[in-house]
Design a protein around this nucleic acid. Sequence first.
DNA 1: TTATGTATTATTGTATACAATTATTCTTGT
DNA 2: ACAAGAATAATTGTATACAATAATACATAA
Lengths: 225, 225
Amino acid sequence: MEENDRYSLRGRVFSKLREDIITGRYEQGEELKESALGEEYGVSRTPVREALRQLELEGLIRMVPNKGAYVDGISAKDVLDIYEIRSRLEGLCARWATEHITHEQMERMEEAVYMSEFHYRRSHFDKMAEIDSEFHEIMYEASGSKKLQHVLSDFHQYVYSVRKMSVQVHTRGKTSIEEHRQIAQAIKNKDAQLAEQLSNKHILNAMQNALDNGLREMLQKQKKG
Amino acid sequence: MEENDRYSLRGRVFSKLREDIITGRYEQGEELKESALGEEYGVSRTPVREALRQLELEGLIRMVPNKGAYVDGISAKDVLDIYEIRSRLEGLCARWATEHITHEQMERMEEAVYMSEFHYRRSHFDKMAEIDSEFHEIMYEASGSKKLQHVLSDFHQYVYSVRKMSVQVHTRGKTSIEEHRQIAQAIKNKDAQLAEQLSNKHILNAMQNALDNGLREMLQKQKKG
DNA sequence: TTATGTATTATTGTATACAATTATTCTTGT
DNA sequence: ACAAGAATAATTGTATACAATAATACATAA
């Protein structure tokens, strides 16, 4: 999908809107008007509407019939919930990946670990977050389960902004890479049990780090507001 | 969403198409032409396209740019994967529901148990399946987690056809109701631990029943094809 | 002044028109 | 007969036009 999206107006609008919502560039509840968006992107309402309908299905906006579309992005609680959900699913994914991974996928996974260390040493945080994503996406793909891949991929993207923040915490960046390395090794050794255990723990650690570096405060603030 | 959908052409097309794909009324890989669908439903291409874009995002169809839309429904393996995924999430959901359920939701849940027994005794299998859905949907809603509700609700719908089949197996129908009753009781008693444990087991039992009543054969058949 | 009903405007929902791309058919030359 | 290429048709992608609904502004009466 990602790639197809670049070659159609609808795809471009969808990707940009999605990113802007996930990264919080819109206010919660903000109204999205089709004409305005169309003008902004230099397209007609048709592709805008198709993009909006997709975002509605995904739950990133809420559409009221004959009224309008309202931003309904990722709250701090959503992020926490997603970490909890992922902590139950990433282990399953690692198990299945161990059973189904191809040689080519294994190589890509190991390269991702290698490259993240490379960028870590140079403090390229954006690049690191990107490769961190890649590691997980490869594992999702390797699971051989279309449905598991779909849900984990979505959730992983939803916490992108938080992850990018967390990875900049120096010690977490290093620890995360080390955890990835161990997971990759377990998968390579065909030790499904260990891969599952490590993956679940990996997510719980990431959640703990997010809580300790801003997420907890965000939760408090949103609970009041 | 469900209700809004009834009042717009796009919504009606979406719901009907979705149901037809989930229940397997289309061939795998079958091409869906916008004009043909429009004629079938007596509408123009516009609402059809919006519906197709939503189904694409959901992964129920695959769209090739400038070519067409192809059915990519729920395979037997998808169903099995979904049971595995749900077995890891329903427990979490039951735990959260125990913590967040309202009095009104609890009453609806108990009524669902009661009603399913009523219809069970009268062998109203369709009605039973419907109320079985209701039980789970109430729990998803009661979890208080928008994201968990979303994913579990989708997955639950995906296995609808299988569930309807399974529930007709006399002994499973009775067992399932009993399990629901115990889960509801645990939630009411605020015993999150027990609710979680029972819910996870409930899904595993449902999976086992599905395997023993047709799913295993479907898996074999699809593996060859 | 304020409530109420009406006209106006703005916005979404749908249909249609046109452009771009892909598939198909029909030549045509060997 | 068959391959290559052009012409034609079919299909999707996008823009625009029109219809239906909701929001707003305004006038009028109590």
